[in-house]
Amino acid sequence: MIDIVGVYKSFGKLEVLKGINLHIKPREVVCVIGPSGSGKSTLLRCINQLEKVNKGHIYVDGEEVTDPKTDINKVRQKMGMVFQHFNLFPHKTTLENITIAPIKIKGMPKNEADDLAMELLRKVGLEDKAHVYPANLSGGQKQRVAIARALAMQPKVMLFDEPTSALDPEMVGEVLSVMKDLALEGMTMVVVTHEMGFAREVGDRVIFMDEGQIVEEGLPEQIFTDPKNPRTQSFLSKVL
């Protein structure tokens, strides 16, 4: 589903990705963990080209997103992205946040888009908030709406960039449970996260990144109970 081949990325003099290779299968849930500044978020943002890579290739669903000739807007429609700070559109209601992309990009009729949005809102447990503006939602509710907004384009892959890091602790659970449901439905997911419990329980595979490289990867059980690399061991000893 996603193929990352020899990717390098620098911001000015600072090299943040140093030769990343990663293959993600359809229906796989990959959790990316690692210390701050290790390049996890940058890698995720390279997948949907919010950041351009300096070297290497990334393929999504058979199309090379790093090829300037590819219509990136078309490929992005197959990838939903959920941001740390939600980035809901504050001038639109919950319902409009979800319907705007299908209506404006796919030309979906409004009533059809409204039905789809209501269905998605039921799925994330917020059908009663359809006509509320984002300013009147809690952080956890905002993030669930953001997930519904991304799902409205019926993506094949969902990218999560630290989706619970900006939430109050009591709201983390409701967002993780929506993500877990999504994983159980078979959505292909790449999740950059600090929620080790989620990575362990829901992840099919865990990637540990440090200083712009994939240091270790494996099954969650193996990574969390028996990490091989000393850097993984030292990171996990601090966070677990």
Partner: peptide, 22 residues
Amino acid sequence: DKGQMEAARSLGMNERQAMTYI
């Protein structure tokens, strides 16, 4: 906020759509 353009683009809007609607 910069995140608004990123959110719009990540949904698949082109630059003009993101400007006009968001």
